[in-house]
Design a protein around this nucleic acid. Sequence first.
DNA 1: AATCCGAATGTTATAATATCACGCCTCAAA
DNA 2: TTTGAGGCGTGATATTATAACATTCGGATT
Lengths: 147, 147
Amino acid sequence: MTTDSLTKALDAAEAHCVERGEKLTPVRKRVLELVLEADGPVKAYDLLEALKPGPGSAKPPTVYRALDFLMTAGLVHKVEALNAFVGCSHTHDHDEHGGGAELFICSDCGAVEERHGAPLPMNAPAGFTIQRSVVEHFGQCANCHPG
Amino acid sequence: MTTDSLTKALDAAEAHCVERGEKLTPVRKRVLELVLEADGPVKAYDLLEALKPGPGSAKPPTVYRALDFLMTAGLVHKVEALNAFVGCSHTHDHDEHGGGAELFICSDCGAVEERHGAPLPMNAPAGFTIQRSVVEHFGQCANCHPG
DNA sequence: AATCCGAATGTTATAATATCACGCCTCAAA
DNA sequence: TTTGAGGCGTGATATTATAACATTCGGATT
């Protein structure tokens, strides 16, 4: 992500929070920035390291709270299979297409693509009501193919 | 799961391992039994507790090794979003339909339904080759509906 | 201005999940 | 019988995450 588009994304995120009556505080903004800057999924404790060039502050709850906030706001997704986090690339201009994102994660370069509008559960058991879905695909992106 | 069908499942699992040139050792069999007995997804450290009524033996590596073996053999799945494990209900009579299972997990009663034959990624980015998919749906099963 | 309130954050500690590294044992193949 | 691989025991430690409580800060109310 370029510096320019990063700035734009942060501004958009801030606007998105304000719209929701919430605040993108400095800690939250910094965590989001770090997540967006990263090449791929980021670990919570790597964020923690990045947050404390100075001695004091930045303990685990700091980063987990920020991540919880950002996830609730839809700005960040957790990759459950990796215990790691990715920035949400999807614009929140006119939200609500329901379910969670479908993630495609390149095991070689770490690139993450996000898709929405789950065409998924043709397959659900009779009477099952889905509240939340986790869909994560791992493999090689177009740039990383051996062929 | 009834005692009878549990026994059958364990026998089938044993046969499945032998077919693959591997051994369902006592520890592995006991872990599988505990996973199958459980009502829903089981945590590794709960298995660990269950494994040590006696004082000595049963440290984390014991259970994680057994789980790794059982997962590789396709007898157990990990629920990534819960850091928990479920028995694979699917028969291995004539295997190989490729990708991982699609799990439907009732948040109320813990029941897990497993589906196969991924109808999934209508949606993949161009050129993306999927190696492994994690698909986990959470919600209410037919028995647990409020309505 | 003084006070209060609630949200956000700081801080300490600990819980929960998972792996590493090493050594021993057993069993079967050579 | 030697030997080698797989499985397991054991102790230590790494990684991921939360609980519980204190403090600060900014806005609303008086």
